[in-house]
Design a protein around this nucleic acid. Structure first.
Lengths: 145, 145
DNA sequence: CTCAAGAATGAGAATCATTCTCACAGCGGG
DNA sequence: CCCGCTGTGAGAATGATTCTCATTCTTGAG
């Protein structure tokens, strides 16, 4: 994951932030264990750095979200699950046990039900971005600063 | 919304539950104010029934979710937003101000960006249902009871 | 019509995920 | 080598949601 590390390094530097061992470790853990929640990430990170704290995990997760490196998911549970971000990202989420399967982008629901032995009951789609008002506001802020 | 009311009545009865004035009121509020959160729903409900409590709002929301009448959404904020459930349900969510636009089902991202003056930065899709393991477990449970 | 049993409610306490605070540690430039 | 930040860990604080419990309402049997 050296490329990720490099990219991280520079976006952090751009924001006047440092690439600390904790941040590097946490990014690695998230990359290796997609869909983990904060407690799970803490547990995994402590195997390699036992004194790391929960606050650092949450702080780092938020930072990585802001840098658009990591993405938080609400999968019907009260806490979030985290994973390295991709532009198009499709999931099969079981409503009963919470299992999450990743999917390649183009798909056909019926074929997919057969292939993954999964019964689809609901399709949820969100297109996330900026509305016209906020695009103008963001532009104004950029000019001011 | 008499049809909704009827349908509710019978699915509640099937589970040995009652259609109370509170439940009817809350369903109506959610129908009339999609994407509201629990506090907002409480505020709206109190206009018509001032002594209704927050616990009842949350209890009813959970019940309506179980009956698959209502759906909770996590739109990047720490609390949920609620709306009457449809099978296919598409949203445009602004990452900055949290505005939510509903969309008709079939769509073309580029046309849509032009039409709604919205800049899409991310596509999120979840197909929700039952995995093979849980379908078997659910079947077993049904047989037992 | 009356009453008992169970379901539902309101208020406030409890819980759980997440964020904040604060004292201390560590790096990086001068 | 020291100063000024940026980060960290621990625990407190917050905020959304769920639970508890005493009370009220409904329903159905008699």
């Amino acid at each position: 994951m050296t490329t990720d590390r490099r990219a991280m390094q520079s976006s952090l530097a751009a924001a006047g932030k440092r690439l600390t061992p904790e941040r590097e470790l946490l990014l690695d853990v998230i990359g290796q264990h997609p869909h983990s929640d904060a407690i799970e990430i803490l547990r995994l990170a402590r195997k390699r750095r036992p004194r790391i704290g929960l606050a650092t995990v949450y702080r780092t997760l938020r930072l990585l979200e802001e840098l658009e490196v990591v993405e938080a998911r609400r999968l019907g549970q009260p806490h979030s699950h985290y994973e390295v971000r991709r532009r198009d990202h499709l999931h099969l989420v079981c409503t009963r046990c919470g299992a999450v399967l990743d999917l390649p982008s183009p798909f056909d629901v019926t074929a997919l039900e057969r292939e993954h032995d999964f019964e689809v009951s609901q399709v949820r789609l969100e297109l996330v971005g900026l509305c016209a008002k906020c695009r103008r506001a963001a532009r104004r802020e950029a000019e001011t600063s």
